[in-house]
């Protein structure tokens, strides 16, 4: 073996080893959370209120709260994100307005989640008098989710062949009819995948909901969108740092449910993508 070949062999081995170094902790963390949290899993854990200073009972209100927040986030970010992406792909000309939108998407994607929290607090909670509420929290998470939804919707729209648009327009359809009947139906899988992905991120976020919605302890379900709720990520933060002597399996159990929820959403998005890809005919 000559020098160059030997160097190649060494380099590739090192690269492979480094990659293992990245992967191993991921598996280790998953194993650790699952094995320690499994003991807490029970029907009771998922469906009961926390009791006795959150040292007993379950995580039901936090689970429901997170699900409500995800739904609320989707209600705002999905239409806004899809419409913006449609603008960028189907309507935008190369002008100042378009460039500003693109720049805004880039910057929204980089703003730290805690800054979203501050913004949501000062605008939705204080300025618009929503108070700390599902509404304020959902709006905050929605703005934060926009960049991912827009980027993936844009990609999905751009993947629809130009010829579909030409066919429709050449038959005298208007621009919106063309988008509605000849573009969107074929872009839906990509849009859904991106949306579910961004919602799964929103489900796991803590910083944006700290001051906009999350309740420390609230053992009943909300009655309106102006109520506060507990949320899984914040609950995990609370029981692992703010409340002493919570049994470890409860913390791990909460973490496990949170990871499971996020992973479940990811799996849903992967299944959706595969399902639509099979049906795709072009």
């Amino acid at each position: 073996m000559n020098g160059a070949k030997l160097r190649e062999k060494i380099a590739f081995t090192v690269l492979g080893f480094v990659t293992l170094l990245v992967i191993l902790p991921i598996l280790l963390i998953l194993y650790y959370v699952i094995s320690r949290g499994w003991g807490a899993m029970s029907w009771e854990f998922l469906t009961q209120n926390p009791r006795n200073g959150m040292k007993e009972g379950g995580i039901f209100p936090a689970l429901v709260g997170t699900i409500l927040l995800v739904i609320g986030t989707m209600a705002f970010s999905l239409p806004l994100g899809i419409l913006s992406a449609i603008y960028l792909v189907e309507y935008a000309r190369d002008n100042l307005f378009t460039r500003m939108i693109k720049l805004s998407v880039v910057n929204l994607s980089g703003i730290p989640s805690i800054v979203y929290g501050l913004f949501g607090f000062t605008v939705f909670v204080v300025f618009l008098h929503f108070g700390a509420s599902i509404l304020a929290g959902s709006l905050t998470l929605a703005i934060m989710s926009l960049p991912v939804i827009i980027t993936s919707t844009k990609e999905a729209l751009e993947a629809v062949p130009m010829s579909y648009r030409e066919i429709s327009l050449s038959l005298g359809a208007t621009r919106w009819q063309t988008i509605r009947y000849c573009v969107l139906p074929y872009a839906i899988p990509g849009i859904l995948t991106g949306t579910v992905l961004s919602l799964s991120r929103a489900a796991g976020e803590t910083a944006p909901i700290l001051f906009t919605v999350a309740a420390f302890y609230l053992p009943h379900l909300p009655r309106s969108v102006f109520d506060q709720v507990m949320a899984l990520p914040y609950h995990l933060y609370v029981i692992s740092t703010q409340v002493p002597n919570v049994p470890e399996k409860f913390s791990f159990g909460t973490g496990l449910v949170l990871i499971a929820l996020v992973c479940l959403m990811n799996v849903v998005s992967i299944v959706l993508r595969a399902h639509f890809r099979k049906k795709k005919q072009w």
Partner: peptide, 28 residues
């Protein structure tokens, strides 16, 4: 565009049924 229709170089059909391809124009 309704008054002046066009047939493209490569056959361009939408990936829907034969019936729906023809019905698309009248529907819109």
């Amino acid at each position: 565009r309704r008054k002046i229709g066009i047939i493209f170089a490569m056959p361009q059909v939408l990936p829907i049924t034969i019936y729906e391809n023809v019905a698309y124009g009248p529907r819109v």
